[in-house]
Design a binder for these strands. Structure first.
Lengths: 217, 217
DNA sequence: GTCAAATTAGACAGTATTGTCTAAAACGTC
DNA sequence: GACGTTTTAGACAATACTGTCTAATTTGAC
């Protein structure tokens, strides 16, 4: 009867197991298609346990989505922290950055889950996904814009609209891979590298300063 | 008892009505979430009629998807036919083209339906959507590449990889709007115009030939 | 008007699902 | 080892959906 959290290890493990299984099943079947029994089986847990932790299917769903969003956002910003700081070898550095971005935010489980769910259930849960939109892609745009501005100040990039450039960078980097991942294929490292390099080259042709400083002085 | 098509007008009208209603409901609720009763009600048709025309839910679903794909592809290629032929005012012409593309292929009912369905049910019907992928986005890529090649021959564009440029053009043009449309918002004409112009400007900075012919001769 | 085909409303069986409930078992802590 | 909590399996009612069937009605061509 002591205060505190009795048997939290067990509970916590169950919760995690449920969240993980639920994410997989919701992603595979969508909200209506997913059945609690299926989730329970995949989590190796009894149905009642799920109802104990999450009152009803809807509660479980929002908990899963919030969980994945948190993880996904964390991954996103941890990759943003690796944005190149030096201007040497800009193409290579940006390419490597783009590869990291695609690997940890687009081509992994969480990324695929979120994209599928945003598309299939987004309109039904506007609040849930609006939050994601603002804190995820929204913030990434501004954060990336800020990072580009550093490079612009160094004179390696010539950007008039930073936010626009950030969104276009993301569009170029993501474009080809979304559909690939969606259909269950896992892009090879080589494909990731080539896609990223193509995107970065085009981006640099549009926004890069051609020759460091030929005249003007 | 005459051969031919008895009462085809009536039948045809019902079929269209069913297809339209089914598309709306499948788009809103997904495959599992959609109920035949709901579709019947929305089509103002009895449930039995649906079962008469389409043997079962799955048959109806594939019929709907194929129908929307056909319409969507037709729209796509009819827009492709308006690709600018002259090199004067390239920015304006390409911008107008991009606006048309977004309007008739991305921001309309069919476009939204396909994107939602490809995302939510694509993995369950690989064959169905693989066909779409090849005949829709796939063919659009090559077709656009061929059109760009005409401009390249005229010396207004400098493109080494035509397919890549086509995909990047589409990525830049589509990027911002997909999410907007998804969440039920209809982008204003002004937004469409600005998005397209931004995309085209960046594309031209990357692939455009700066000054028609300053030296070299 | 006649006749065949199409459509309708509704009942119906079969199945699946959600969410509740209960009693037994497992678990963890002391 | 005892005790309270958590978990489990299963029964359970309530509901919803699919797909079939039937009998009555409407439709459209001739």
């Amino acid at each position: 009867m002591k205060a505190g959290r009795p048997a939290q290890r067990g509970q916590c493990a169950k919760r995690l197991s449920i969240l993980e299984a639920a994410a997989a099943v919701f992603c595979r079947e969508g909200f209506s298609g997913a059945s609690i029994d299926e989730i329970a089986a995949e989590a190796c847990v009894s149905r009642q346990t799920i109802y104990n932790h999450y009152r009803e299917k809807e509660t479980l769903f929002t908990a899963v989505v919030e969980d994945v969003m948190d993880r996904s956002n964390a991954a996103l910003f941890s990759v943003l922290a690796t944005f190149p700081d030096t201007a040497d070898n800009l193409e290579n550095e940006l390419t490597a950055f783009a590869v990291r971005l695609n690997q940890s935010c687009l081509c992994n489980h969480d990324g695929k889950f979120l994209r599928k769910l945003v598309y299939s259930e987004g309109e039904r849960y506007p609040h849930l996904f609006e939050t994601w939109r603002q804190h995820g892609p929204g913030k990434v745009g501004s954060a990336l814009a800020a990072l580009f501005s550093r490079l612009a100040h160094k004179g390696v990039l010539a950007i008039d609209d930073l936010d626009l450039a950030a969104r276009q960078f993301l569009a170029l980097v993501n474009a080809d891979l979304q559909m690939t991942v969606l259909f269950g294929e896992t892009p090879s490292d080589d494909l990731l590298e080539r896609t990223a390099r193509n995107a970065v080259r085009t981006f640099l042709r549009a926004y890069g300063v051609q020759h460091p400083a030929p005249a003007e002085a």
